[in-house]
Design a protein around this nucleic acid. Structure first.
Lengths: 208, 208, 208, 208
DNA sequence: TATGAATGAGAGTTCATTCAT
DNA sequence: GATGAATGAACTCTCATTCAT
């Protein structure tokens, strides 16, 4: 994008190419997963869709598992970034607002790529190094703990870790199921209602 | 057709043998799933562990999928029976008691065969006719709705279906995760604490 | 059919039952072959359709091959009987008439059970003891030879065996193909034309 | 893309390897069919005999059926090429000569690979996309029709299609049976006699 | 004798992975 | 590096046949 000198180090060109190949592979994998399901996502097929050879695939990913892991990670990161963005400044907000925002963001997180999310959640066997898909847990657990810590005196909390666990797990479950399974039946209106209910559930639990 | 005392009809002998084979197969499947994971559960291996031939397997189960489905169903039924037993009479109990009981039962349900439950939840690709594992949903959803209906005036409920969804999903998620993932870290004491917290969460949500 | 004494020897009853079972099996085989093809004709399926157990099937037929052979033989015999009936007295007829009758009968023979005939001809691998399906050959070869012998002086024949071979093979081929493959396209009228042509072919060849 | 002398494009090297594999597979199939019959021609066995892996087999042939089809096609093409070569110029020849040549060629066609021809004709179930083996029909039907058309005035023909059908079918049947079944008994001398008889049969039928 | 549950060799096929080019 | 042909273990499933009841 910036003006470039006439000679670029080959290494960078190479790295760019590598990067492009890796991206293409991850994207192809995600695409096949969404469109045809895990069963159809063979390495040969992935390579073909990515426009590279199987050999190249194995140049960049040591196994099929690693490829799927990359898809999961990429998806996770997209979500994490979005959540971080949306939740900036939440620490200083009131409980009601904060919790409502949290739930809203959780819904939004599941809507980043719901089809992919569903496939990852339902079709990928959690075996080997393939971790559980955690939309709203790891990083957000910390965030939530921090919030609780900060507002501790306003809240009715004994065990902070336990409370965080309860809240984060609950929000994750409610929004995950709502978005990924019942979304056809759920109008935006009902979704709002659900968000409100979930917020009330958590708020009631936390407040003194 | 004539009365033949002392001699059992062949059909029963037959049914017994069949039944034994079917049982052996389902058990073998569950055992392999637990001990070695879904990947290792090939039809030949299952038959071998069951002590029958692959042919017999396919005499009773049209596909590998059907076998796994049978394992799921059997597990589901064990849980359902236990839940039914434990929850008899819950309809007439107070909210506090009822909800506490519900959460306690949910924990117990996940402890029926936690290893199997975990494999079923995490390693079985939800593809084809293989439904989601629902420990605490379908039948219990109805039960919960009935409870809420009955105690409606004592409660703060707008949308009964929505409230049921929120409660059932929440209890399921909290207990599922606690039992199946963090159980190593969770002492019985902490578990009790969790149950209390979950109960408080739900109770606070429902009460006026 | 005749009036029967009150007591029949059990052996006969048994024989009748056996006979009935055998018939049922052969019929079931033929039926499955016609309706679903050779691939679907497994011994278990045949037994089921015949209303007996696989065990019984093997009581009467040592192998699947034997069963198919029985179907072929039964079909062959039906044809042979029909041909014999229709061709009685042909020996004394004139060449024109005799040959025309022969061709007509050949067509009729292929129409005894054309669907079965086609399956037997096309789907049954001629392996082991399974012979070629010969509608119009073995017995009729002899008959034809006899005719030629008898009318030798009217005919232009060097090698009687060779002439028989030529005629019988030709008639068989022309009628077989016409009836079994092109019968949809062939109107009765065209069929008649074909019969006439075939007759002319053979007659021209035989006559001085 | 640039001209690269002395270096063959990779594609060709690749194509050569592929081609060799495909050839080996088709040859192996034919060999097994001839030597051991259709029953023994399993895909694994074919691959083994071809000196490649089953995986390679399925890289080039989508099914066992496709492999057999390839053998049939290859055989058919060999025959077709031979027939075309031998029959060049037949259109302008006299009836006697033309018909005699035709029959002679038909015999020769069946002698291209008689054992294979026999297996293909007798053991391959005509199921799915596997067509009838037609040594002397499709293309030659057209050729024969053309001949009759051209010589129509010299001949006694009403229905040209019908006449072609009669002649082609007859020649095919006579030579097929003679070469493939009775060839042990048939000396070259008898074979010549048969050819003469067949030619006389057809000629007599066509001539005015 | 009839039954049908049980057998198990073997079929066709797939696919993650390797490696010569 | 990139290619893609080749690999082959492993899988699901079938079916002619046997044999305990």
């Amino acid at each position: 994008m910036a003006s470039r000198p006439l000679i670029k180090p080959r290494k960078i060109a190479t790295q760019q190419r590598s990067r492009a190949t890796v991206d293409a592979l991850v994207q192809a994998t995600a695409r096949i997963l969404v469109k045809e399901g895990f069963d159809k996502a063979s390495t040969n097929r992935i390579a073909a869709v990515a426009g590279v050879s199987v050999g190249s695939l194995y140049q960049y990913f040591p196994s099929k598992e690693a490829l799927v892991a990359a898809v999961i990670e990429r998806h996770q990161q997209e979500i994490t970034q979005m959540v971080r963005r949306e939740l900036a400044g939440v620490l200083t907000e009131s409980i009601d607002k904060a919790v409502h925002k949290l739930v809203t963001v959780a819904v939004k997180a599941h809507r980043v790529d719901p089809k992919l999310h569903r496939v990852l959640a339902e079709q990928i066997p959690r075996v080997g190094k393939l971790e559980k898909l955690e939309t709203f847990n790891r990083e957000n657990f910390a965030l939530f703990s921090a919030y609780l810590e900060r507002h501790r005196e306003e809240l009715r909390i004994d065990d902070l870790g336990l409370a965080s666990y309860v809240c984060v797990t609950t929000i994750e479950a409610l929004t995950h199921n709502a978005v990924l399974h019942d979304s056809r039946m759920l109008s935006d209106q009902t979704m709002e209602a659900l968000v409100d209910e979930a917020a009330r559930l958590i708020t009631g639990y936390l407040k003194k």
